[in-house]
Design a protein around this nucleic acid. Structure first.
Lengths: 210, 210
DNA sequence: ACCTGAACACCGTTCAAGT
DNA sequence: ACCTGAACACCGTTCAAGT
């Protein structure tokens, strides 16, 4: 059998991963430094060595994580195609982690998330779009709003929201657009994709220069 | 001088009002049962008598409050006018309370908020719109996303988000669309209204049957 | 009916100490 | 350099008790 020490060194990445697991599985309110320590087989205080500002830094890191997306440049694309690619990537990233959506929609972009936004802006400008910064703001608003109603309708935060709940088990860690509940089996989640794609085309038309 | 007792009976409404004041002024994380009690000149435990499920009920009530809007029927309006009125009212209500935006974007609508959504749906249907439920979802997504980027850009949650911060004073209780900061005095908040109105028109065009 | 006081289990964070 | 243990101030919530 393997040696018991060292159990794995503990790193910013492992901390964030474990934190997302807890938040998605039990709600943001149950994400506790002590619980996070337990999940990482470590005392809670060890986390402060990797995230000096403590829980505040952790929350920032979580928001940054689910809000950082990358799309390869692909030089010959229209600005519409570029915009579609970014919007879809952003939606998927947010949908994957419903537990930290409240942070993602609320905290201003920082670090890698800000870099990603700049990259998106540049790609749109290079694809010939006039006011790329405005387009990015509009696209971000569209994606955030769409995901907000999707998560709300999924019943994910029925009890807890960015809070917590009492005992009911959460749907569990999100895996993409999977595992929606639906009031009476009514909404197959394909409807959500359709609504998103249709809305996206409307936004793109609204963004067109003419 | 007036008698010292009773200081004012304490009610659900007064509790919610005080809670909004704290959340908007210092961030959601600083909204504490004990602090809320202090603000109401009462022991924290007294709150449980008016909100039996405690903090969970308080959070639900706050989300419900900032998410409940009313628009008078005005029978002879086009569905576009009806949609505009609802969208503007919803935006203003959310913008007034940045401290609880995370709850509003995250918790599924309940109680009066749900009633308001049904009322909106009915008004749109009566104004001749075909798939009113879908339109309401699209409009809600648009409003939520727009407000999310507006609040993010205002720098309201620079430190705290739905969390808290350390010592920096918040911009203070929001008063409508007032008191945005702007990176270098760049964005006069009029730009935000313009973007909202333009986006709204694009959404309305996208919603049109043809 | 409405509020209080004391108590309990649990937080985030510090700091000195271990290795 | 990395982690631990004990400690401190502060949480949410309970319950019996006051009025």
């Amino acid at each position: 059998m393997p040696a018991k020490r060292p159990p794995v060194p503990l790193s910013r990445e492992r901390i964030i991963e474990a934190a997302l697991h807890i938040a998605d599985g039990q709600g943001l309110r149950r994400l506790t430094m002590r619980r996070l320590g337990d999940a990482l087989q470590v005392e809670a205080m060890a986390i402060y060595h990797h995230l000096p500002r403590g829980k505040e830094a952790l929350m920032d890191a979580l928001a940054e994580h689910v809000t950082t997306v990358a799309v390869e440049p692909s030089g010959a694309a229209s600005w519409q195609e570029v915009a579609r690619a970014w919007a879809r990537a952003a939606r998927t990233a947010l949908l994957d982690h419903p537990g930290v959506l409240a942070l993602a929609l609320t905290k201003p972009p920082r670090g890698t998330a800000l870099t990603a936004i700049r990259e998106q802006t540049q790609q749109l400008a290079e694809a010939g779009l006039d006011d790329a910064p405005r387009a990015v703001r509009t696209l971000r608003a569209f994606v955030m709003g769409s995901v907000a109603v999707e998560i709300q309708r999924s019943g994910w935060a029925a009890g807890p929201a960015d809070d917590d709940e009492d005992a009911l088990p959460h749907p569990g860690p999100g895996s993409g657009t999977a595992a929606l509940a639906g009031r009476e089996g009514a909404e197959p989640a394909e409807e959500a994709v359709d609504a998103f794609e249709r809305g996206l085309e409307a936004v793109l038309r609204g963004l067109a220069p003419a």
